[in-house]
Write a protein that binds this DNA or RNA. Sequence first.
DNA 1: CACCATTACC
DNA 2: GGTA
DNA 3: GGTG
Length: 671
Amino acid sequence: MAESWTSLLVVRKPAHLKRMLSGRPAKALAVNTGPRRQLHLALHHDDLRLTQQQQQQRVLLQHYRSLGHMPFKRPAPVPHQGTESGGESESSSRPPPAKQQKTSMQKALPDTTVYIVQAKLDVGGISELFELAEHHTKGACRNAMDADVIITAIAMRRRLERHVPWDIAETKAVVTPAWLRDSVDHGRALPCGDYVAIQDLLETTVEHCPDCNCKPCACSDGDSEAATPRFEAKQLPSPLSSPSTPVKQRAMSTSTKKEEKKPVVPQPVPEHLLPPDPPIPTNLAKLDYMSRYACQRASPLVCPNQALVRELDIIRRSRDLEGEARSALSYERAVSIIKAYPHEIRSLKQVEKLPFIGVKITGLIEEFLDTGKITEAQTINASERFQTLSLFSSIYGIGPSTAIRLYNLGLRSLNDLEVYYGVEPEDVALQSQIVEVEEKPRKPAWQRGQHKGDEGLGDSWTRVALGLREDLAKKIPRAEVEEMGRVVMRELEELEPGCVSTIVGGYRRGKMESNDVDIVFTHPDPSKVKGLCKRLVRKLHERGMVTHVMHLSGFHAHNALRTHHWDSLEKALTVFIMPPSSPFHTGVRRRLDLIFAVPDVYWTAVIGWTGSIMFQRDIRQWAKDKHGMKFDSSGITRRYDSKEFFPKTEKEAFDLLGLEWVEPKWRNADL
DNA sequence: CACCATTACC
DNA sequence: GGTA
DNA sequence: GGTG
Ligand SMILES: O=c1ccn([C@H]2C[C@H](O)[C@@H](COP(=O)(O)OP(=O)(O)OP(=O)(O)O)O2)c(=O)[nH]1
Ligand SMILES: [Mg+2]
Ligand SMILES: [Mg+2]
């Protein structure tokens, strides 16, 4: 049978920390909510992403510098980026800027041979780069292996691998076209760090950069890889430096004798498992803010009526906490429909015709239009009950029902909960000491606790969650989300090379900060997927990155027969801590959800986990209403004959359901 | 008056 | 009942 | 709470 192993690491915090928990003004997190009152067209999360990438790159570089691994004499030039045309790494299509000046004289990069990856470049960009290469470098070569520098507009590892073998790329500086342009402008090779095309290659790119001021101090000449006595904890930051991949081995790819055994031909990942290259734009004109289905509306992250929506959401949350799920659903739908309304609401008439706005909610909106607030929401928000129930249910594992029960017991604060659940305040001096608690094979014991008579006190699981609350309450910046993705992928690559992943959830929808990180994985070979989730979690746990596992499901769990596509999804809900080797290491633990799908259901899993929740519910509602289909994250099934459908791409799933394509950034149908 | 997404796991 |  |  299944060996439901659940090894937990309980972190006991010193008492002074607990006190802080109780009475402390929430730390202001400098949340850049972005400009409000934006119209649909104004919101380009791609631009935000760019900024984030650059910011993150800066962090990484600073980290390197602080480690003395990267000798930058002067601040490297900021990579220029077109603020317009939200073209991500799409620095390709730009008219050859007027950058002449030192055409004659001598070449800027006389000793550098470049290889230009044409993919993702338009003809103009290609010819421009080749021209630059011809006039200002030793030349452009036809084989990546022969180059010193690889120029590419590709930003994704799996995509680059389709053009340049990874082990080759690791022996070069792999930079964006901007590096060549700017180097030519400056008349010399610029440091590559700020121009690295793919984050995973930052380290090797810097190492192999032809910029003059290479060799760091006097110490290490090549790489501090040699001396690494202790358990490789010193593993530099995030970028690839996997122990399995000998950084030494330069040139000559895989002609090692030993490697013959397993022809691990890095067969590139099939195109359809990668995100569509030119991203598919959303045809906003074909979407309809009056539609009853959120999946037919364009819902931005921040809407023109954000203040109103926030008021309504307070009532919604209250209804939820009070157990009035249906009422809560109605408010959720009202919020959702307003979220997609593209104008500032000035009169009731605008709103009365919208679906899901009935008598009650119309009245509330009327008040809001008159006074700028909703009294009921204000009252709720000011109530001790709402505040307390909210606080309690913010603890993982405590929902509305339990929260009410605790409230009715008279509990009001975290301190009350800690006492109730028996958190020991003894270890005052101990700095968050780690105590391992093995909860070995538990049978059907999860109906434990809770209900009075039982040991209502001392639910061990909740005790753990209480200790995690402070960390998990902190939002995760986009850059750290991305780092978590890289770190996890690095481990996975060692475990099973060739996997593909998408960071989904709020991150994919463009949120600047997430409450957790959700990643969907697959592998082109479906047989490689089975058991991967458990294996990865085990490895992450062994390496100290996963501290808790709340949930672990192998695909082997279908209830008897009849429930199709059972063995297609594996899922782990965990707590993750950034390894000290990462520049993002803070010691703050994060929720991390890992989802493994066989390739057939990869895109439905991605859709399901991208959300938002309301968007998902309405996709499923739509599938049922209009097509008699059942949609869930592990597949699409026709209800009358149970025929399954496996869309090859995300858009194919939309097509299959007769839905207009909606980019993730327009799927923010919840607050 | 029925429906409101979906499913398995802890 | 709680969770994604 | 709102819809059909
Ligand atoms: O009841 C639910 C909860 C979640 N999801 C899907 C949609 C959601 O977007 C995704 C991830 O859930 P999560 O709780 O992580 O929310 P999020 O959208 O990622 O936002 P954040 O993590 O920032 O809170 O899982 C559902 O379909 N139904
Ligand atoms: Mg999430
Ligand atoms: Mg999640």
